[in-house]
């Protein structure tokens, strides 16, 4: 198992604010890796930088051995990674089917049609609602749509930013089941979560972020039992 994603010495600024302070981490093929941490620790910033939405000041981002840190954001998806952004950000005025079609924007029509059927198998609810506009979906359905849309590019690495945010506990469980299922089918997962308990329970490995630095790392299981992690993120 080689490194699929290797981030080394990454520094990101918002204006004068040093948001990410030289972090390094890696994701191996087939793993579920999670970044946990409090609000403002830099989890989303890290994902958005890997996904190309933000520019790093310095440091390298290697995907399958290729340097991608200078790649324009809209080309990153063709490299084989997809980012399912925080807050879902589905296109509210487009139909469910159109949202999925946008997810396959870089691929041809035949490939898209094939993948859309697979996504409908994974998310039968989306098939029922395929002609509705995305704005009319419930929060859980929108999260499924955002994930389905990211899957439309057939990513090798799927990055998920706070997929459980604002969802009822039963839906959170469902979303995490789906993430595990995707992983079993061969998609490598990089997950950012505030729900550390859930994230650590499905993760192979995890990194703990605090104010832009990685302060702890280990397997999901180790960190679930780690005293400092329990105190800070798991409620004691």
């Amino acid at each position: 198992m080689g490194n699929m994603l290797k981030v080394d010495g990454l520094n990101v600024f918002y204006g004068n604010i040093h948001a990410i302070k030289g972090i390094s981490f890696e994701v191996n093929e087939g793993e579920i890796v999670t970044l946990i941490g409090a609000n403002g620790a830099g989890k989303s910033t890290t994902l958005n930088t890997v996904g190309g939405l933000l520019k790093a000041k310095s440091g390298s981002i290697e995907f399958e051995g290729r340097e991608i840190s200078g790649t324009p954001a809209h080309r990153v998806v063709s490299e084989g990674m997809a980012l399912c952004p925080e807050g879902r950000r589905v296109f509210a005025q487009l139909t469910v089917r159109e949202n999925l079609e946008m997810g396959a924007y870089t691929r041809n029509k035949a490939e898209a049609a094939e993948t859309i059927e697979r996504v409908f198998e994974q998310f039968p609810r989306l098939k029922e609602r395929s002609r509705q506009t995305a704005g009319t979906l419930s929060g859980g359905e929108q999260q499924m749509l955002a994930m389905g849309r990211a899957l439309m590019s057939k990513p090798k690495l799927m990055m998920l930013d706070e997929p459980s945010m604002g969802l009822a506990p039963i839906l959170v469980q469902q979303i995490f089941d789906i993430i595990e299922a995707l992983n079993k089918e061969g998609t490598t997962i990089l997950l950012v979560e505030q729900n550390a308990q859930m994230a650590l329970s499905i993760a192979d490995r995890a990194y703990v972020l605090e104010t832009g630095k990685i302060v702890n790392t280990g397997t999901g299981k180790d960190l679930l039992n780690d005293d400092s992690v329990r105190k800070a993120y798991l409620g004691g």
């Binding site: 996904g51 809209h74 998806v77 296109f91 159109e98 079609e101 946008m102 924007y105 990211a150």
Partner: peptide, 24 residues
Amino acid sequence: TKMGKAMRAVSEDKGAATLMGINV
């Protein structure tokens, strides 16, 4: 059309459209 739908996607959310691989 694909281009037309991409235009509507861009009009709603440029960032999300970029993540789809759309050249905004």
